[in-house]
């Protein structure tokens, strides 16, 4: 399955990856061959096979509704690029 250049750009945008125009041809080739590899699965006959939600044949364990976490804000915010008054700061987002 061959991706075109616009699809590569779109994928990069969705993933928030900045790629150079000069790199697009490479990505196009590599991503397309990955898709080809995965696409071999399409050849398998899946009639009557229920889609699998998880590879492990197990059921979700549940936890009791208890507050078990303490406030570790100081600790977590040491690795944040910018904080103020307890908030994480990001470039301004306005809808």
């Amino acid at each position: 399955m061959a991706l075109d250049q616009d699809q590569v750009r779109n994928i990069a945008e969705l993933c928030r990856l900045q790629i150079d125009d000069s790199q697009i041809a490479d990505y196009q080739k590599n991503l397309s061959s990955i898709l080809d590899l995965v696409n071999q699965l399409a050849a398998a006959n899946t009639d009557g096979v229920e889609p699998m939600a998880h590879p492990l044949d197990a059921v979700q364990r549940l936890r009791a509704d208890l507050v078990t976490e303490d406030n570790q804000r100081e600790h977590f915010q040491q690795i944040a690029p910018a904080t103020d008054q307890g908030y994480y700061l990001v470039p301004r987002v306005v809808e």
Binding site: R63, V67, Q72, G86, Y87
Partner: peptide, 28 residues
């Protein structure tokens, strides 16, 4: 609920910013 859907952090409304956001909520 008292705690979050996938973590043991409190859901209490009105707390100081980020005092109820644990490692799971932060996606560490």
């Amino acid at each position: 609920t008292k705690s979050k859907i996938f973590s043991g952090a409190s859901t209490q409304y009105g707390a100081d910013a980020n005092t109820q956001a644990c490692a799971v909520d932060l996606g560490l």
